[in-house]
């Protein structure tokens, strides 16, 4: 039984009321009904309570606090001081490093977001064609980097700037380069290396969601399609697979977009903090700089708010676009 208010408010039916008082009593009724529904649902609220308290304390309160703090100057020692839009104007007009960080982050997101999203789908799609045992094996190979913790430090050895680095070693052996390249200390390469490693470990939750979506795809749709004249895998992909996976595709988009804006750990681990001439500086590392080193909490909160708007805004736009596809 659904816990909706099943019983009609009997008084409504039994006593006819004059038009004038009707509106008022309706509003009163609504309140009463709400109260009754809430009372009926008290067990549900109780079940949700532990999660919601923690969620409220560590997600909702911080987002609101960050927004409020962004209008203050606050160094954790003195009382916060209201400064209006100062933090934002300083951020966009007076902070060249932030502009570099923003440019890097956008560039980064614009590359890794779509590429990793498409990669998640394509590899899930190819893997799905394999026989079950090999499919399970390949799923592990592709998914493992995203849960292997900080194994990405191995890339440090591969891209190491001296002749001990594997890439330098191989390239020099082949005679392609004569001198070792400072992959992680050269502005020309460092962002590219960070992007590559980020892509390596970005086949995460959405990849699994796609694999799962493909495996539960209704086979009869494909058979029906074959009768309707679908002849090859590309047509099948476009006309049958993609449209029926829309819910997973929407979910995957959220995961990949959020991830692509939040690059920091990889950048710090590979390129250092701060990186050479801020070449791999991102909005998140800028935020860390002001939040955990300089303790300019108001300013850092303004950065966090910008990051929040960037992430949520992009997600909303992409959701809208994806919903339109195939409708």
């Amino acid at each position: 039984m659904k816990a909706k208010s099943m019983e009609q408010p009997i008084d409504d039916i039994v006593y006819p009321i004059k038009e004038a008082t009707r509106k008022q009593s309706k509003r009163k009724d609504k309140w009463q009904r709400l109260k009754r529904d809430m009372k009926k649902a008290r067990h549900y609220y109780l079940l949700m309570l532990p999660f919601m308290i923690i969620f409220f304390l560590f997600t909702i309160v911080p987002v609101v606090a960050s927004f409020v703090l962004s209008f203050f100057s606050f160094n954790m020692l003195e009382m916060p001081q209201f400064v209006g839009w100062d933090n934002y104007s300083r951020l966009f007009l007076g902070d060249d490093v932030f502009m570099t960080a923003l440019r890097n982050t956008l560039l980064f997101a614009a590359i890794t977001g779509p590429v990793s999203y498409i990669a998640c789908f394509i590899f899930a799609w190819i893997i799905n064609e394999l026989s079950p045992k090999i499919r399970a094996f390949m799923t592990v190979i592709f998914y493992a980097p995203s849960i292997a913790g900080n194994v990405f430090f191995i890339w440090l050895i591969i891209f190491s700037g001296d002749t001990y680095g594997y890439l330098n070693g191989i390239l020099m052996e082949l005679g392609i380069i004569l001198e070792p390249i400072q992959w992680l200390r050269d502005e020309q390469y460092v962002l590219g290396v960070v992007i590559l490693v980020q892509l390596w470990l970005s086949l995460g939750t959405s990849f699994l969601a796609f694999i799962a979506g493909l495996q539960t795809l209704d086979k009869s749709l494909i058979e029906a399609g074959a009768i309707d004249g679908i002849r090859n895998r590309w047509q099948e992909l476009w006309y049958i697979t993609l449209p029926s996976m829309k819910p997973q595709l929407l979910f995957g988009a959220v995961m990949q977009i959020t991830q692509s804006f939040a690059v920091a750990d990889i950048s710090i681990a590979l390129a250092g903090f701060p990186s050479v001439n801020y070449a791999a500086h991102t909005v998140v590392t800028h935020l860390m700089d002001y939040g955990t080193i300089r303790f300019e909490m108001g300013y850092a909160s303004a950065i966090a708010t910008v990051l929040f708007l960037l992430m949520v805004g992009t997600n909303m736009v992409v959701q809208k676009l994806l919903r339109k596809v195939g409708t």
Binding site: F55, L57, F58, T59, I60, V61, P62, V63, A65, S66, L69, V254, M255, I257, T258, Q259, F261, A262, A264, V284, L287, M288, G291, M297, A300, S301, A304, L307, F308, M311, V312, N315, M316
Partner: peptide, 21 residues
């Protein structure tokens, strides 16, 4: 809806107030 919204940003956004909490 709020939970879905929360999927759309990473914990970095809340790092500083989180420390205060």
């Amino acid at each position: 809806q709020i939970v879905i919204l929360a999927l759309m940003f990473s914990p970095h956004v809340t790092a500083i107030p989180n420390y205060l909490v």
